[in-house]
Amino acid sequence: MSGAKASDWSNEAWLAGLRARDADVIEALRERLCLGLQASLGHRADAGDADLDDFAQEAVLRVMDKLDSYRSEARFTTWAMSIAVRLSLTKLRRRSRKAVSLDASVAASLSDDSNATEGMTHGARGEMFELLRQGVAQALTERQRQVIMAELEGVPQVVLAEQLKVAPGAVYKTSHDARKKLKAYLADAGYDPVTVGELLAAR
């Protein structure tokens, strides 16, 4: 790697250096990831310089573990950065909602009490919201309702997955299945996507 700046290295050069466990290449990757994390997450109050250094260090190890899954259609450094950002934000999300009770989130969220729509927008938009509320109460399973409500409360997927003792992918699938059911529920009542879009835009 001597003679060329890390920013000029090819994908192949990065791969070869990391596979050979070249200390200079590993350090160059750590520096690159750390700079990227500082640029993208450095403004956050919950992410100090020491955190970002730790995340970059851990991300290097994660990238090394995943080298065989790298596909050459992407620039190597962008691929590595995507891993570093996922790792960092997952840690920050877990930290931010560590103490949140899922039950409390659900209780504070969407009510299935029809009186809850009092004071809402009247007219077609209000009717659509009322129908959606009914859909949540009647068309979803308890687990789907739990996931949807937690998402609306901003509970991070990783935290939700840990509380439900399932993989994050399972949380996403539950959410997707629930959203599809609600979309069909609205469509059955005449609220196709165009109509819903118009009502949402008419705020």
Partner: peptide, 18 residues
């Protein structure tokens, strides 16, 4: 908007993009 309405607005947008 009430808290409930904000949630329903957010949910309607998510559902519509599904």
């Amino acid at each position: 908007m009430t808290a409930d309405e904000r949630h329903l607005d957010k949910l309607a947008r998510l559902v519509n993009e599904t």
